[in-house]
């Protein structure tokens, strides 16, 4: 009996897996260009307002940023273990890794929420009145901070949903984890969201702190 994971128009699971992985890589290519708009704008403005960006960078909370970076890196490691375990047939271990990954993602979101709250208490939202930093470039820095981190947060939320999807769909039929490309594709997406954060960490929290 053919696996339930096999979908039209594919004839075999390996072919389907390779194509799904190719599709995800293409999607990540799109995503890189999507975030590329933010990185390009940030770079231009940092070049135009270097001192202002360093001053604005010092206002970020590096503790939140650093802990969150650690959380995401560990989550990527666990996700990797999960997707490898799914391929190796270690379904119980894989189904342990996925919830841990998702919970780490939610820890990130929670910490990010606290950080946003602190930022707003310090009026670090450049569109509203009372923005404390006088430099022109500081407003730009914080505008990019908000756009970039919110877009990243949305991506991470989608990722958490995708990881839970693996858990739900494999509940009755763990073999599905092996047959379907879902675990590998989800893992790719998760690592991408993690990578974007590593760049954002360097661009947001480190300026002005060396």
């Amino acid at each position: 009996m053919p696996s339930v994971a096999l979908r039209e128009p594919w004839q075999d699971l390996g072919h389907q897996r390779n194509s799904a992985v190719l599709g995800m890589w293409l999607f990540l290519g799109t995503e890189i260009l999507f975030f590329g708009g933010i990185f390009a704008g940030y770079s231009v403005y940092r070049f135009l307002h270097t001192a202002d960006f360093l001053a604005a960078g010092r206002e970020t909370n590096i503790y939140y940023g650093s802990v969150n970076t650690l959380v995401l890196l560990v989550s990527s490691f666990v996700m990797s273990l999960g997707s490898r375990a799914a391929r190796a047939g270690l379904f119980r271990f894989a189904r342990l890794c996925f919830p841990v990954t998702a919970v780490l993602g939610m820890v990130f979101l929670t910490l990010k929420g606290f950080e946003y709250n602190d930022d707003l208490e310090k009026h670090l939202f450049p569109g509203a009145s009372g923005f404390p930093l006088p430099e022109a470039g500081a407003g730009l820095f914080w505008a990019f901070y908000w756009v970039a981190t919110v877009v990243h947060t949305i991506h991470l939320t989608v990722g958490i949903g995708a990881v839970f999807r693996l858990q739900i769909l494999s509940r009755d039929d763990p073999q599905w984890l092996n047959d379907s490309p879902s675990a590998e594709v989800t893992s790719l997406y998760w690592h991408f969201v993690d990578c974007i954060w590593v760049f954002l960490y360097a661009l947001i929290y480190l300026p002005g702190r060396s």
């Binding site: 799109t30 995503e31 260009l33 999507f34 975030f35 590329g36 708009g37 933010i38 704008g41 231009v44 403005y45 135009l48 307002h49 202002d52 939202f125 450049p126 569109g127 509203a128 022109a136 470039g137 407003g139 730009l140 914080w142 505008a143 990019f144 908000w146 756009v147 877009v151």
Partner: peptide, 28 residues
């Protein structure tokens, strides 16, 4: 995707009033 981000940045500037392309606030 670059167009998507461009329109997103433009809309964020318009909706939230954050400075992104506004020359009066350092934007380009």
């Amino acid at each position: 995707p670059v167009l998507a981000m461009t329109l997103l940045l433009m809309s964020a500037e318009r909706f939230f009033g954050i400075p992104i392309f506004d020359p009066a606030r350092g934007g380009d």
